[in-house]
Structure formats: structure tokens, C-alpha cells
Amino acid sequence: MSKITYREALNQAMAEEMGRDDNVFLMGEEVAEYNGAYKVSQGLLDKFGPRRVIDTPITELGFAGLGVGAAMTGLRPIIEFMTWNFAMLALDQIVNAAAKMKYMSGGQYSVPMVFRGAGGSAARVGAQHSQSLENWLVNVPGLKVVMPSNPADAKGLLKASIRDNDTVIFIENEINYGDVGEVPDSEYLIPLGKADVKLTGCDVTIVAHSRMTGFALAAAKELAKEGIEAEVVDPRTIRPLDENTIIQSVAKTNCAVVVEEGWRFAGIGAEISARIMERAFDDLDSPVIRVTGKDVPMPYAANLESLALPSVRDIVEAARTACGRA
């Protein structure tokens, strides 16, 4: 095991996969000579040269489409969006082309590629640069959506995503880039579609992804002081969702809190609550509680910004209510 950052873990995943397969290339704004807006691609240009690490003009729709076309010919593009906010310009290529090409072509053309970049709320950058848009993307059949919450997951999941034969939406967390964690030294992959129980407990299930996994673990610590044992489930892959792990946990705890940073309306929490209702209704002692970002554009002022986001306190309170110890 080595202690590395989330950023370095992503960098190692790309370097290893580019080293083993010449069909893998990285393209995006500032990925090459500038070493990445968030330095995730640090050193890759030096290692692999300008054929495989390519700076683009600021032209998201165009280079997203380039990735789709290249993937259809058997290459394995990694298309970096500086942040997912800017991927909104490329939605046509993601939703209408990448996700549907295999179906529309009757299976003749696959689109084995990764769209990756920073997502989630950032700090003090206002409404356009700070938001969670994963619920837009998980809605689309044909896409896989992966959101790692720590360095070890980031590395293993990105390597698996690059090798996957379908289009993977890989949403990193901007605030987590500097987080340090233990990462195995020998090569490993983490299969897509498998949740991870980050903490076992028997009193309440807390489902949380990406940065919210860390919040949920912090909440669990608080709850432990009160004698409440929380189980924290990180789905890691949001689509397809490892529903069984969530259902099994609820069967044990009989209550659940679902946490997400994004907006509440038609969010991931709504989907997960519905699934728990569909499959574990009889196991529930209380209604599922959602802890979400507030239904507002992200404000700039520090106090308003923190009000807009879920907090550890919100999760603690929801968990107490869910297990009847409020």
C-alpha cells in the first residue's frame, strides 16, 4: 500500500492503461502542455508524447464527437472535460450519439470510451461552476456512470472504465482531488456496478456517493458516540446501480438515509428510495429520508453556499430520525 492523492490515483490509472494499450489516448482542454487544469494528467505528455496526449481548442461538442467517432473505429479515447459543467455543451454527442450508437446500429458500432472530469460542487465559484449533474446522465440507457469517493476506488474504477467496452461517464470530485488514501501497490481493477460497504453497522443504512461518502462516514462517527451504528454504502457506480447491496443492508437495519449533493427533484436519492420501496418495503420500519443539495442555483457568499449543500449535521439528524432516536 502507498499513500497517494485522489489526483495521483487517477493519473496512475491513465498512465498504466496508456502503457498497456496503444489505442488509449487522452484528449481535452489543457491536458497536455499545461498538465491538466487540475493536474490530473501531470507528466502524461512527457511519457506518451503529443500523438496520445492532445490539447484541444475550447470546443466541447466538437471533441466529444471526435471521441465518439474514434471509439467507433476501435480506439479507446479518454475525453477530459475540464469540469462537467462544460460538458453541457457536448450533451448531444453524449446522449444522442455515444449512448445510442450501439442500439441504432443494431450492435455494429460500440463506443468504448471514457468521458471524465471534475464534477460536484466546488468552493465559492458560483452557480455555473458548482453543481452535480450526474442525475441527468444516469437517466440515459447506454451510459454507465461512475463516481469514486476515494483514491483507491478512483484508480481501480478508472482502469476498469478505460477497459470497458461501453461509454463510461466518470465523474471525479473537484474537492476530493487532494485527498490522500491508501492504494494497493500491485495492479488491480474494481469492477463497475459493484457497491462497497465502507462501514458496517446495524442501526441505519446511509447510502452516499462521491464526496458525500466522506460526509456519511463523518456522520457515522458522530452517531457512534450516541450508540447508533450506521452502515455506509457507497454505490461507486450509479448506473448500473448495485441495488442488491443496498437492499441487503436495509434488510439488516430496517431504515435508510440517502445522501446526494445534487438537486432533490428527480435526483439519485429519489431513484434509490423508490427502489428500496419496491424491493424492501416490508423491511422498512420508517420512511426513507433524503438528504440533498437545496433546490437553488449555487450562491457565492460563504454562508449561503454552505446552506445550499448537505452537511454532516443534516445526515446525523436524518439518521437519528430514520432509526427513531431523534
Partner: peptide, 14 residues
């Protein structure tokens, strides 16, 4: 058109 760009890119890359 962007998808075609990708096919052309692939001709170049390969």
C-alpha cells in the same frame, strides 16, 4: 460532423 472528425482522427492515429 464531429463524429466524422473522430473517424478522420482515427485514420490519422492508426
Amino acid at each position: 460532423v464531429p463524429i466524422g472528425l473522430g473517424f478522420g482522427f482515427s485514420n490519422w492515429y492508426k
